[in-house]
Computed example of a mutant assay.
Amino acid sequence: MSGIVPATAALLSNVQEAYSCYIKDNEEQQKLIKNIDVVNVTRAFDTKHERLEENEIELLNEQKNLKQELLNATKMLEERSTRLATALNNKASDDVGTAEALVTAANAKLAVLKTQLIQNNENLNRMRKNRENE
């Protein structure tokens, strides 16, 4: 035998059917790949969005804490200023020095808290703008 297969109508029909099945399967695989890509992109977007929301919540909590610390420091400053005024009126030099030191410390704490609050607000605004631009 020479190894040549005769091209019969049945053989040609089977080859065309096999090729059609191959094309159909290939198209279905491409659709599945596209669907998987869409799902992956959606998941990545959702994950990024969740991360941004978590970061925003953290910044808002930090802002809340900073505002509370600022309020506490302001109350402390008022109290220490009152002590300083009382010490000055009573001419108690030991109390004046202590009160001045306390007022200075309170002012320094207020300055730090205000700077942190400004940075926090800038971070929140930047994050919100980035989210709007997406």
Rank of each mutant, 00 (worst) to 15 (best):
S2T: 13
G3T: 13
I4A: 12
I4W: 08
A7R: 15
A7V: 12
T8G: 06
A9P: 02
L11P: 01
L11Y: 08
L12H: 10
S13N: 13
S13G: 10
V15M: 13
V15Q: 14
Q16H: 02
A18F: 06
Y19N: 07
Y19K: 04
S20D: 12
C21K: 10
K24C: 01
D25V: 12
E27I: 11
Q30Y: 07
N35K: 14
N35D: 15
I36C: 05
V38D: 15
V39K: 09
V41L: 14
T42L: 14
R43F: 14
R43S: 15
A44E: 14
A44V: 09
F45S: 09
F45A: 12
K48V: 05
K48C: 09
K48Q: 14
K48A: 14
K48R: 08
H49S: 15
E50S: 15
E56V: 06
E58W: 07
E58R: 07
N61K: 09
E62D: 08
Q63H: 03
Q63T: 01
K64H: 00
L70W: 02
L70E: 00
N72C: 07
A73E: 04
T74Y: 05
K75A: 11
M76C: 04
L77C: 04
R80M: 11
T82D: 13
R83H: 05
T86P: 00
A87P: 11
A87E: 06
L88R: 11
N90D: 13
A92N: 11
V96Q: 08
V96F: 01
G97K: 14
L102R: 05
V103R: 02
A105Y: 09
A105D: 12
N107W: 06
N107S: 07
A108Q: 04
K109R: 13
A111N: 09
A111F: 05
V112Q: 01
V112A: 04
L113S: 01
K114R: 06
I118D: 10
I118Q: 07
E122T: 04
L124D: 00
L124A: 00
N125R: 03
N125G: 01
M127H: 03
M127K: 03
R128L: 03
N130T: 02
R131W: 00
R131Y: 00
E132A: 12
E134G: 05
